[in-house]
Amino acid sequence: MHPSYLGVFLTFARNSLIRDMTFRTNFLIEVVSSMSWMIMNLGFYTLVYQFTPDIEGWGKYEFFVFIATTMFVNSLVQAFFMPNAQELSELVRTGGLDFALLKPIDTQFLVSLRRVNWSSLGNFFVALVLLVYALPRIENFQLFWWQILLYPFYVLMGVLILYSIMITLAATSIWLGRNQSLYDFWFYITNFSRYPMEIYRGSYGEPLRNAFTFVIPILVVINVPAKILAKPFNSQGGGMAADWRFLALFTLFATAASLIFSRWIFKKALGSYRSASS
């Protein structure tokens, strides 16, 4: 008999919420501090846009939509997967993974979704506000029904790609025993995804862009949904690889491939797990 995955997940989510609500002040502080981080980021770009009308074709409010997309994707990843991936390397080190393996449920599901960090969802609402603020201020802005459908869909695809990369990285801690610089690495890799892909040009930029689009697909994570919403028609420069229609198709493939690849890595890593004597 199979356990109800949805039921188990809802229980996890509820338990995490109860736990978060036990320390309410701490919860509030976490929400506020991650918000202030994003507000500083916005301040930085407001400053930059005082000196320039656009960055590689991204006007100020189009870029704000880009930032809002970054916030949507990151807050979802941080809420659902980040604390769990972090814990996985700790579970491996202490041998606590034994208990996860014994449970009659898929191990990847269990270790990926055990905790929900509700406070990270604070930024999700900031992103909504930012989106509502920025969208009508884009020049000649029109909203089509397919944009409203595709945008959340591709935000979700982005979350899944990032999840795959994260769980792949976390799974390496099974081989390495412990992976301290995991989060540094994560930070530096995803750092590339936080900018419009058009800025990577020139003899160094092109290969970099291609590598981060087609080898490790982190550039499509935010660029594709942001383009769908903010600039669905004008795709100047960069040729075919910057056309969102092509990229959107590719993203479907990339998401499926990353999920399958990360699943394969995870299983392979589990196969060589040797329990720490506890």
């Binding site: 320039t52 656009d54 590689e56 610089s181 690495f185 530096y188 750092n191 590339f192 020139g202």
Partner: peptide, 22 residues
Amino acid sequence: LMRFLPIVTQIFLWTAVFASAA
């Protein structure tokens, strides 16, 4: 060495900003 990676994106970002600045 990894800590210099963000510099790479900074270079690209500012090159783009200066390309369209007044």
